[in-house]
Amino acid sequence: MTQALDSGRSLPTRRGFVAAASLGILGLYGVWAALGASGKSGKDVSEGHAGHGEEPEIASSSGGHGGHGASAGGPSTDDFRRLTEDFSKRWKQQDGSVRPGYVPEPVHSEPDPHAGHDMHAQPVQPEAGHAGHDPHAGHDMQAMQALAPNIHAGHEAAPVDTAGSGNEVYLMAYQWGFEPSWLKLEAGKTYRFRMMAVDASHGASIQIGSGSLITRLRQGVLTERDITFTAKGSHLLYCTVFCGAFHDRMTARIDVV
């Protein structure tokens, strides 16, 4: 029918040609496939290292708990706040940074019953080797088992990076800051970032190289990403979801060492 209607027309004035040309946009599927972007997201982290066959990808997806705003399946905001405080306290260094998995030479000090409850506290003495003495360390035993499986690591030579130790990063976003506000992470090591916005939606984006790694955090939703920094450097962590008047002052720092 269309052919009959189109008889006598030049090719570009035929309806069939216009229809076919319009469908040309679907050829972008092929481009995506060629770029390796057509498959299912969320590969296992072990497959994603650059230079090891599979192409790395950033930000393909974020594992989120609880779907669209619900917090089912993950910790509550209060629990997450405590977990983050414990994490920061557990790995806080003398210079004020938080460096998971790294325990310097032990420094013996008395347990601080208030440590971990002041989000804006100045750097404290490292207590990694004494985490078991912290009266707040036992808020969530299950989480803490994952968080600090080797509490005596501080008695060994630094740095410590045994399997399952110090490869999780707790990052809490709040109005208007991040906790921890200064992370030191090791290049080439894969960290599982466990992130949550506790008061409103936030972003946790890292300016890195010529681009950025963007993560959107919804209030009360635990979001996990496995992140490996492949080169040393200092990076700005900043909020990319408008969160109120001081949104543009919501920053932190990640040093990759």
């Binding site: 997201s41 969320g42 590969k43 296992d44 982290v45 994603g48 290292h49 650059a50 192409e55 790395p56 990808e57 950033i58 930000a59 393909s60 997806s61 974020s62 594992g63 989120g64 708990h65 399946g73 993950g74 894969t190 599982r192 970032f193 890292i206 890195i208 190289g209 010529s210 681009g211 790694l213 996990e224 990403r225 496995d226 992140i227 490996t228 920094f229 492949t230 080169a231 450097g233």
Partner: peptide, 15 residues
């Protein structure tokens, strides 16, 4: 550009 960044990030296992 994305692949030039010195970072690898993959969505963690969702529950």
């Amino acid at each position: 550009l994305m692949r030039s960044l010195p970072v690898i990030a993959i969505g963690g296992a969702g529950h």
